[in-house]
């Protein structure tokens, strides 16, 4: 199954991605995680130190030059089949690929880096037989229709704030317009009686991650979100989300 997780910054996308990966690997699945978020913090969330986190693909100028080229003629469909194995970092049996974010044009042409990133994402999503979880802050619409139709499900996550919910709603609408209809919503740190305002359209809410004191305390000293005392409760949340997406 190929899943994308999206939502406003800081709402818990990366934490949920790490939890899902950790749950699946303990079920003896083959798990690939892709970090395509601006904060590039999935590696640390899984317990890697900053030195152990591979450099994001978008910053790997040499590789991009080699595959996409520079100057006037660039190949917008670069060869990437060998890259997942080459670039992946093993973490607890999971494979982590760090991509970075689709760049704005920035200084000069961002096409080469973007082409590389999109080609690799598409390759990972289109090829079969494993669990793939993509942490994608900005939503899915820049992936292109062909790639999006092969994503099996979108998990939209938000805190109980209007800005977070509005972002969730936008991401969900844009993904649906592109044909990604299987969507679920996860609320983070909302009280049990919280009900989102009716005028904000959201996918069905399938799980609510409670506020975890242990996680807040841990985050003060370590970026790792795994091995918390509440692991069983966290597994329950993962099961709920995955079950809802299988339906």
């Amino acid at each position: 199954m190929k899943l994308a997780i999206a939502g406003k910054g800081g709402v818990g996308k990366t934490t949920l991605a790490a939890w899902l990966g950790d749950y699946l690997i303990r079920q003896n699945k083959e798990v690939w995680l892709i970090d395509a978020d601006t904060a590039i913090s999935l590696g640390p969330a899984l317990g890697l130190s900053l030195e152990e986190v591979p450099i994001p693909l978008v910053n790997n100028k040499k590789l991009i030059q080699e595959r996409v080229g520079t100057g006037v003629y660039i190949n917008l469909n670069p060869e990437v089949d060998d890259l997942p194995q080459k670039l992946a970092k093993d973490v607890r049996g999971m494979k982590l690929l760090v991509m970075g974010t689709i760049a704005g044009a920035g200084s000069g042409c961002g096409c080469a880096a973007n082409a590389m990133l999109k080609a690799l994402l598409a390759y990972m999503i289109l090829r079969s037989s494993q669990w793939l979880i993509v942490d994608l802050e900005a939503g899915v619409e820049h992936l292109g229709r062909g790639t999006i139709t092969s994503v099996d499900g979108l998990i939209v996550i938000s805190e109980p704030s209007i800005r977070g919910l509005q972002t969730a709603s936008n991401i969900s609408r844009l993904a649906r317009d592109l044909g990604l209809k299987k969507q679920v919503m996860v609320l983070n740190r909302a009280s049990e009686d919280f009900v989102p305002p009716k005028d904000i359209a959201l996918p069905p809410i399938v799980a609510n991650i409670p506020y975890l004191k242990s996680l807040e305390q841990r985050q003060q000293t370590s970026p790792c979100v795994l091995d918390l005392p509440e692991r069983e409760d966290i597994d329950e949340i993962c099961i709920k989300v995955l079950d809802a997406l299988k339906k």
Binding site: I40, T101, G106, S107, E137
Partner: peptide, 30 residues
């Protein structure tokens, strides 16, 4: 956002001050 791609789009004006905001969490600081 954390990637700062757009800053370079405004290259005609240099940035006088960059304010990096974080909470006290390790991931925020990293």
């Amino acid at each position: 956002e954390a990637g700062m791609e757009h800053i370079s789009r405004l290259t005609t004006k240099d940035v006088d001050i960059l304010l990096i905001v974080s909470d006290t969490s390790k991931r925020g600081l990293q």
